[in-house]
């Protein structure tokens, strides 16, 4: 056991500082993907709620693709795909410029692409959950479309969206581990490097698992708090 503790200690001989650095990268991945994923998700839900058929159709297609394809495959597709696509475009317009896409960015885009598809459904549900009577009342008061959206619908949408988004955050946090496979130095990758140089895989992977458990545990508590806040003043809950 002292052997295991020694391996995980901080400093030159131990891998504690590497694991900690990996944990920070994992959190950075998750937060960046969350920010990008929320924006993309809002856009997608707007497409799905559109009056026109084409954006609705594209939105449906995209969401169906993401829901049916393994996250791992999506990540590899984005990792190898975006770079070659951009490179092809650059060559096509006659620019022989080196386009370098960092792996971290590839992972963030891939994770956000996954997150956005599920978030769009959450937003759409939240949009519909605001009672129609309130919207009618707002229009009757003489509010413009934008005012109705901004003052009546949006503030309440967040309330309805928070439980769903909380779940998606937990899924995202766990999905960040996939970035290790495309060599982003996240928590799992650091554990892998450590286990391969010390030949103590059980210690390292259990340690990584424990850290993930702490991250999701804290997230769970935070989510419960947020949900309580979001429910303030709601009747019958």
């Amino acid at each position: 056991m002292t052997g295991a503790l020694g391996l995980l200690s901080f400093g030159d001989g131990g891998w504690g500082d590497e694991l900690l650095r990996g944990t920070l990268v994992t959190l950075q991945l998750a937060v960046c993907a969350l920010a990008l994923g929320l924006s993309l998700g809002l856009l997608l839900s707007a497409m799905k709620l559109s009056k026109h058929r084409l954006p609705r159709y594209i939105g449906d297609l995209y969401i169906a693709f993401i829901r049916a394809t393994p996250e791992f495959l999506i990540l590899l597709l984005f990792y190898f795909g975006i770079e070659r696509a951009v490179q092809a475009v650059l060559v096509a317009v006659g620019l022989d410029v080196a386009f370098e896409m960092p792996r971290f960015l590839a992972a963030v885009i891939g994770l956000a692409a996954i997150f956005s598809a599920y978030a769009a459904e959450v937003f759409r549900g939240a949009y519909m959950a605001v009672p129609n009577g309130q919207i009618e009342a707002a229009i009757a008061c003489g509010m413009s479309d934008w005012q109705t959206f901004n003052r009546v619908r949006l503030p309440q949408m967040w309330r309805f969206a928070i439980p769903g988004l909380g779940n998606l955050w937990m899924v995202l946090l766990k999905d960040t581990s996939l970035a290790a496979v495309i060599a982003v130095d996240d928590l799992l990758r650091q554990a892998k490097i450590g286990s391969e140089s010390t030949r103590a895989p059980l210690t390292f992977y259990l340690a990584a698992g424990a850290i993930y458990l702490v991250l999701t545990g804290v997230s769970d508590l935070a989510r419960n708090g947020l949900e309580r806040r979001a429910r303030r003043g709601m009747a019958g809950v």
């Binding site: 799992l188 895989p201 990584a208 999701t216």
Partner: peptide
């Protein structure tokens, strides 16, 4: 425990971790 940790980590604990025993 099993919902709180990534599936990938679980796979590596069971395959590489326990396997090393």
């Amino acid at each position: 425990v099993f919902r709180g940790t990534p599936l990938l980590v679980q796979l590596w604990i069971f395959y590489y971790g326990f396997g090393a025993l």
